[in-house]
Design a binder for these strands. Sequence first.
DNA 1: TGAACATATGAACAATCATTCATATGTTGT
DNA 2: ACAACATATGAATGATTGTTCATATGTTCA
Lengths: 113, 113
Amino acid sequence: MSESTHSHHNELLNKTRESMPKLDTMFELADFFKVFSDSTRIRIMSALFQGELSVCCIAEILNMEQSTISHQLRILRRENLVKVRKDGKQSYYSLADEHIRLIFEMGLEHIGE
Amino acid sequence: MSESTHSHHNELLNKTRESMPKLDTMFELADFFKVFSDSTRIRIMSALFQGELSVCCIAEILNMEQSTISHQLRILRRENLVKVRKDGKQSYYSLADEHIRLIFEMGLEHIGE
DNA sequence: TGAACATATGAACAATCATTCATATGTTGT
DNA sequence: ACAACATATGAATGATTGTTCATATGTTCA
């Protein structure tokens, strides 16, 4: 292989590497989308578009265990996608971000709904 | 508990259920975002923003096994996010959709980059 | 204070998934 | 036809993750 071929090859390689986001950023991005990659979390967020809901209400709407919902809400909280308002015994969850609706719409558009 | 309390409760429950996307749609949506939830796939797509690339070139850019890249490209192909152009020994992959850039930008915006 | 209820959480388990290794398929140039 | 190369893919493995059960924490009301 000639030297010029090598250098062209390395040029593309370096140019592409430089155009890419930082490695850490790409890991964060994957983690962010990971939150949307589970159907239970998608269903919880879908329910919350309607307005704030308590944990047991979400569990009833989805027809799933309260424990399951709590665990998934913890993940949504950790990623700042929902916020909590405590009132007596209940915890009322709501979407933290109008952003989420856009991300949903974008996904729905791609799967053609 | 009074009957009116019950009916208010069921009203919210039904209203919310009706406002949600179809169950199948929510499963599809989760599957769609699942593709973006892995850092290797994110890195592959990031590289492809630059233009089409062969499999071994992607492997070199990411410094990963050719086999790993092939497996992940298969998933991206299955979900219609990349397309292939075969030329001799090589397979050149490129992004199937300008959509992907928007989804990336939306994610980057949320993680604050 | 005690009973009933709402929520959170740790441990265990099953299922999913990314990676690697080995190898098959297909192409180019000699 | 053969050697060298590029890509694809099945099987095995290790790691991650969603769900369930049991239980802890905290609140309300009698």
